[in-house]
Design a protein around this nucleic acid. Sequence first.
DNA 1: ATAGTATTTGGTCAAACGTCCAAGGCGATC
DNA 2: GATCGCCTTGGACGTTTGACCAAATACTAT
Lengths: 202, 202
Amino acid sequence: MGETSIERGRSARARLLAAARELIGELGWNAVSTRTLAERAGVRSGLVHYHFDSLQALLRHAALAEVQRMLDGTSALLAEATSPSDGVERMLFDLDQYNGADPASLLFVETYLAATRDHELRRGMSALVADFRCALTEALTRSGHPRPQAAASMVMALFDGFVLHKGLDQGLSAEHIAPLLRRITDTEEVRNTNTEEDGEQR
Amino acid sequence: MGETSIERGRSARARLLAAARELIGELGWNAVSTRTLAERAGVRSGLVHYHFDSLQALLRHAALAEVQRMLDGTSALLAEATSPSDGVERMLFDLDQYNGADPASLLFVETYLAATRDHELRRGMSALVADFRCALTEALTRSGHPRPQAAASMVMALFDGFVLHKGLDQGLSAEHIAPLLRRITDTEEVRNTNTEEDGEQR
DNA sequence: ATAGTATTTGGTCAAACGTCCAAGGCGATC
DNA sequence: GATCGCCTTGGACGTTTGACCAAATACTAT
């Protein structure tokens, strides 16, 4: 049972971050308090300000780490796939494990909203999202997609909106929209009904 | 200046709702208090519980009314258009007036999140969203779209995700993704790379 | 054993919170 | 002018909040 002080400290800190990860989704970013956080983590509330500068700093740290973990997992699906179209479809089906009302889904959206009001959180989220979009754009470019950047932006927006809507619309499932999702990621351009303004690039 | 008590009452109530509409987006649903609300509306905080049963009831009422107003306006664009593809594209460009960080955009997302934790709000939002999706699905059906319901769900999820992402990704604009949006709403089915499971219907 | 360092506790503090209510204001009606 | 009903005020209430800190504890190094 030889547990050093530093080890116990790391464990308590990790439990606080895990509690934050859960509670942000369960209660909402602004409804997480130092006391509920400490109770969930199994420590006393005074510890929060020993391990973190402020409650906001704790939430920021926990949210960014979790978002990065989720994006990394999703990125891996893309890298393993034989084509971006297949990868994006696998990402979509992977998203189906979230029902739009679970803490994991809600943490994502809560973090987006909190980022609009917390400058440092915004910087962190921007960087994570930009990295992911960059990877997706590159994969689409390699496959010969005519508008890789626009397609990447669309897929990412669609995924987040997909999660957001699943909370209200029970009929929303991955297999429901997968065929149409392929229309976005498909390499071949569909016939253009209006060729009025097509001079855009990158 | 013959202003009856009832008229003054209606005015105060309306100002409270307008203040809620603004503050939900500015501060976040859970950060709106009776006192900031009253100050913004130019009344005393005691008045909140005269016109509304609770703070939550006020926020619920304000949010649902605003979401309905926005959806009605967007619905009109669809009805005026010559085809659903054009209508959806006009809706997209209409969305461009929101930068993703303004109170109007954020109120929408905040209401989604609050609906996952407030049963009555969830019922109201579900009804509004279902109505809108129904109108969009019908329009797509009339135009001969092969998967009208899936396309409607996708467009709606994409729009909300679009607003959500604009807060972080400055490069996201309507004209950027409009060409690819048409791929979803286009009537003609794109060539199907995989015909493995295609037995779904409705 | 002793001194030293890192972690944890338990409590205090002022501020802000939602809700409630007795009292007052004020135009309409008799 | 008195009465009535709706609207509004200002303050009270009991909680909860983020932050902070001196003391207590647990482990390490001497």
